[in-house]
Design a protein around this nucleic acid. Structure first.
Length: 258
DNA sequence: ATGTCGACTGTTAGTCGA
């Protein structure tokens, strides 16, 4: 079983790339973030024609998340948002796929530590933590995939000194990341790769991708039961090289069959 | 190094968010 996550930065613009990527990489589950389209604008027909089913939570202009699953897999027990946490920003969708509880999340960016969006980020992280804790308790096989907007370690950042204390790297954000880990989850990428310079996002500006100046902020956290089945976790840089790319590139987890 | 995208408002550029 393969599960992937990709922040597409507008599904309207990136749909052809998503379909191409799925053709090249027929993963079982693909979590998408930053759809940037309203609930009724989701390209359901095109996704289904490609052999996938989907559950999505759309929002005009901002945010928006989806879980795509390859037929004949199905999505069940779909939950939108974080239960009990009222949020006009649509950032989380959860579903059960092939026995795995899959949570797709677009974490708050926060803009800067002195921004008014930063306390919202910390409050949102606390709410998510509570939700993840309950889901982990209820489901042995659990995975949290998405754009975390957190670089957990200095080796996940191209210039740790310049980024020190900045948004994506600040201590409270990293602490929130490790509280998720403390729930019994593992950063699947780091099960297999301890190298630095392994990034999932590069700024569009200043040829940051060509210079490999990026940040690893897209993650797949998995429960112990899935850790035991994990065979590989890879960042696929190919779509970042395409014309008119998303600024993020996919991360793919491969699990052994049960 | 205020650079590049994408969406929106509502023109042919400015604003916001990332």
């Amino acid at each position: 079983m393969k599960l992937a996550t990709w922040n597409v930065n507008s599904l309207k613009v990136r749909l052809p790339q998503v379909l191409q990527w799925l053709q090249d990489n027929p993963v079982d589950v693909l979590c998408l973030q930053e759809l940037k389209l309203d609930q009724d604008k989701f390209p359901q027909e095109e996704i289904e024609a490609a052999g996938y089913r989907a559950a999505w939570l759309g929002q005009k202009t901002y945010n928006g998340v989806a879980i795509l699953v390859r037929s004949p897999l199905t999505l069940s027990d779909v939950v939108s948002g974080i239960p009990g946490y009222d949020d006009v920003q649509r950032r989380v969708i959860t579903a059960t796929v092939g026995g795995v509880r899959v949570m797709c999340a677009y974490f708050v960016n926060g803009e800067a530590v002195d921004s008014e969006k930063y306390p919202y980020k910390l409050a949102w992280l606390a709410a998510l933590e509570g939700y993840v804790a309950s889901e982990v308790a209820a489901h042995t096989d659990f995975a949290l995939l998405g754009d975390y907007n957190i670089a957990p370690d200095d080796r996940d950042v191209y210039d740790p000194e310049a980024w020190q204390g900045k948004v994506l790297c600040s201590e409270p954000e990293r602490a929130a990341f490790f509280r998720l880990i403390a729930l019994g989850l593992s950063d699947s990428f780091r099960l297999f790769n301890q190298d630095d310079k392994q990034y999932s996002w590069w700024d569009y500006r200043a040829m940051m991708f060509r210079r490999n100046l990026g940040v690893r902020i897209d993650h797949i956290l998995i429960s112990d039961s899935l850790k035991a089945r994990a065979l590989a976790c890879d960042i696929d840089k190919v779509p970042r090289k395409w014309e008119r790319p998303s600024d993020h590139t996919p991360v793919v987890l491969t699990l052994a069959a049960e």
